[in-house]
Amino acid sequence: MTHALVGDAPVQPGAIALRGLTLGYDRHPAVHHLDGIIPIGALLALVGPNGAGKSTLLKGIVGEIRCLDGRIDRPGADSIAYLPQAGEIDRSFPLSVIDLVAMGRWRRLGAWRSAAPDHQTLLRALSAVGLLGFEDRLIGTLSGGQFQRALFARLIVQDARIILLDEPFTGIDGRTTADLIALIRDWHAEGRTIVAALHDMHQVRGHFPTTLLLAREPVAWGDTETVLTRENLARAQALSEAWDEDAAICGRGDGHHHGAPPFSDGHRHIHGHDHPHGHDHRHDHGHAA
């Protein structure tokens, strides 16, 4: 029923609909029965304790991991730009900064077209992140903050309508963070959809109008002020701790009661599931059609 509700709701092209979405590893859910719509042009913060499934959700949206259950609908199939938390980037590879940024043009250039006509675009992106003059430096010689700026320059030239950022400011100094947040706000002003996993509540409150609080289960989704309440945060913490305990005793038959409608318009809280089941077996519980 809950899934059917969202399933019936028409989704505008460019939005991302999460329908009964369960994501995880080895059939262990890391994101559990998430329903909701990320509307086009959203500036959404993804918040939750460690292991809450923030990175997993972003990986699911970008298609890095398969859904264990439910699905993700993206009518319009806009291109997605994704900045992972711990990328697989080999920084010892002798590649220049401008070549790294030029990778963002792949969709336009492919394997063979010349990147020369895009040179100005690349330089503009580098200048937008304050790295003008660094174009011929090897990526291995950049500091952590400079490298993150370079990755943001690559996001700029990707020019995607949907941008997913996983903890983009970890280990980055205040000045760089402020610059990059300004960039994110520009993207927002241009009508792009931005989802960022963050752990700094101050940043979230200051810059992100909407927030999804996740603790494997979705805890709350809506306006940032109504989501980031003391009770919600405490509940997220408790949920994530309770979950560890569940895992230890295998949690079978430990009824989580469900009941809330999906978050299509925010301002709601959900309280788990209405069907008893463990968390380590297949999701075959049929979702009460």
Partner: peptide, 23 residues
Amino acid sequence: AALYRPLVMECVDPLFLRTVSRA
């Protein structure tokens, strides 16, 4: 020569290449 660009991308940042292409 033909594979140069995707090969370099696959070496430097395979995850990025996966998100933009199946190459």
